[in-house]
Amino acid sequence: MNFIYNLYPVRAVFSIFQVVTSWLTPRNWFRWKPTSAGQLEKVEQKILNYCKNLSEKKFVPVKSEEIWTVVLNKEKEEEHTPLVMVHGFGGGVGLWIQNLDDLSEKRTVYAFDLLGFGRSSRPTFNRDPSLAESEFIDSIEEWRKSVKLEKFVLMGHSLGGFLASAYAIKYPKCVQHLILADPWGFPEKPPVNQEQQRLPGWIRLLATMIKPFNPLAGLRAAGPWGPSLVRRIRPDLRETFSEVLEDDTIFNYIYHCNAQKPSGEAAFKTMTIPFGWAKFPMINRMTDIPSHLPLTFIYGSRSWIDRSVGNRVKYIRNDSQVDIQIIQGAGHHVYADKPQIFDRIVKKICDTVDHNIALEQRKSQLATEKERNIGDEIQDE
């Protein structure tokens, strides 16, 4: 889950109130300007212009749909294990802008917009939560086949971490290491009495009122004031991306990613229960991931995500490699809040994968040579 669950509730409600009241003035009645695919493309291009290692930008066919994909350092694909990056709720490839060049320094990196998000196709997902999840997962597998990837490191943030885990359960043979950056959807929902003690009554009332709507319906209702709404609710994003992006680019990007047809957003709502818990928590399925597949959790120390889940996974998968990294000073957007530290952890993981693959190849080569030598000795006798 991305920026929407990182809000200060009072600030969010007050900002929405300000935006709504501004609609009521006559001067705004005729200023409505809807979003478009072209506007999203334009603002994303402004972001991607920062990339130095960009090799390809393309729509990858996935049955009757298309998944928008960017590829960096394509020429290194045969030399090192590729890295595949899966964004979180409400995001897209542009949010990785501070990481793409660094992570692709010596390997190929693939980043794509999940089906139903960003510039990818926005189909109507199944209303059954398990089937909606499967549609996400199967689209990733079809994407993998289309780009002809055999082995890769898979990294997902927030909702992307949830889906990356589900993918590793269903299609584990291609995943060399699973990296979960502040993943959403792992813990079970606490008992009702505990949740009521934790949340103020006005928040529960507000949640009940907006329950029939998709999570970001208010952002779309804001129309041309959407970027302003994002800016008021999350002013910290300007500073977070200030080293690479100027003016309101990041706010415009988030707005145009989410102001169009709420396809993936509706699927996400189908997969959740109030207040933002997964209907089928991933913690109950982690033992379904093959024990030989190593996992790494990367948490921000200031994130709202419950990082004790990582320790629970480590306990229940005691026959598997499970590492937990906590980045001090980072929030839920751990990859953007502390990009240098985050990238250093991810690159070390990828280098370890390369090293282990090289060792396995060397062992296989030695075994083949040994069999050949034994065969030659038998023939000589």
Rank of each mutant, 00 (worst) to 15 (best):
K173I: 09
G161P: 07
F112K: 07
V192P: 10
N193K: 12
L131E: 15
Y167R: 13
V153G: 00
A111Y: 02
N126S: 14
T108L: 02
P191T: 05
S158W: 08
G116W: 00
M155V: 14
E142S: 14
V109E: 02
G161S: 03
D113F: 11
Y171N: 14
V175D: 04
G118E: 00
L149I: 11
E135F: 01
F117T: 02
I137K: 09
L149T: 09
G185Y: 07
G160T: 07
G160M: 06
F162S: 06
Y110V: 09
E141N: 15
I179K: 05
I179D: 01
F125V: 09
V147E: 08
S104P: 01
R127C: 05
K151M: 09
S134L: 12
L163G: 05
L131Q: 15
K148P: 10
A111Q: 08
S165F: 08
N126W: 00
L149E: 03
G161N: 06
R127H: 12
C174M: 13
R122E: 07
A132V: 11
I137C: 10
K148L: 11
P190V: 09
A166M: 12
E141G: 09
L178I: 08
S165G: 14
K189R: 15
Y167C: 09
D128L: 08
K106L: 08
P191Y: 00
G156I: 00
E142R: 12
P187Q: 09
L154R: 13
A132D: 03
S104C: 05
L154G: 09
C174G: 15
S121M: 00
L114F: 01
A181W: 10
D182Q: 09
W143P: 09
K151S: 12
I169A: 06
K189L: 08
A166R: 15
L159W: 11
E135R: 13
S104T: 04
Y110P: 03
